[in-house]
Amino acid sequence: MWKWFHKLASPPHFYRLAATLIPWLAVPGLMLIAYGAYAGLFVAPEDYQQGDAFRIIYVHVPSAYLSMMAYMFMAFGGAIGLIWRMKLAHAVGAAAAPIGAAFTFLALVTGSIWGRPMWGTWWEWGDPRLTSELILLFLYFGYMALRSSIDDTAKADKASAVLALVGVVNVVIVHYSVEWWSSLHQGQTLFKEGGPAMDASMLYPLLAMILGFTLVFGALLARRIRTEVLYRERRTRWVREMILSPEGGK
């Protein structure tokens, strides 16, 4: 187990492994998204309360879930990097930040567009779910700004890892805000006691979208980790040998 873990954490090994993984994540991910989008838009019946506006959940829910998951990648990457001084873990954190920011932006924008016809407002400052999700976006921006403001990669890794770990509190608040406080945002639908509160015709496209988005996130993350690894290892022998080899290592 530890041997496998150490091999996985080896930058040259991971660089090559990620190149192999990207199409295996991206292609099924895009196929699931295509199915989920088609079934969600054209096959699932309209909601009895929200009408066709409910179809926004097929992009909003996966984006919102990935906005939190990407942050957890950042935080776990930071924790592993700080505790075990694993360089690859910091690279994972740095690579996850821009993708997480993109999905958080999507969750906020699609949520706001859904809110206009359903709540009669684009935004509600008093709502804990909306406000904590916006803070999550600022945390991503802060993390990226902090990294880019420090020239020394090792120092940037440490400082940004601490920020990522502190920000986990906000991820917990985002997740539980609808249960802890009165919120305009609806409560849990998928992971509630007694099973999902959705008909199968609506649920399956949503599950396909969540899985598809997750696989595409994995492909994007793998691509960005490769770039991080390449940049961090630019002065090492394996990078020099790879670039000078006839096959290259793009």
Binding site: L41, D52, A53, V59, A102, T110, P117
Partner: peptide, 25 residues
């Protein structure tokens, strides 16, 4: 059902953001 502008704009923005993320990477 008169929500077309909201629904399609959400799907369009999502597609654009994912494509931009991939191209930038």
């Amino acid at each position: 059902g008169n929500y077309g502008m909201y629904v399609w704009s959400c799907f369009g923005i999502t597609l654009a953001v994912i494509l931009i993320s991939d191209v930038r990477a």
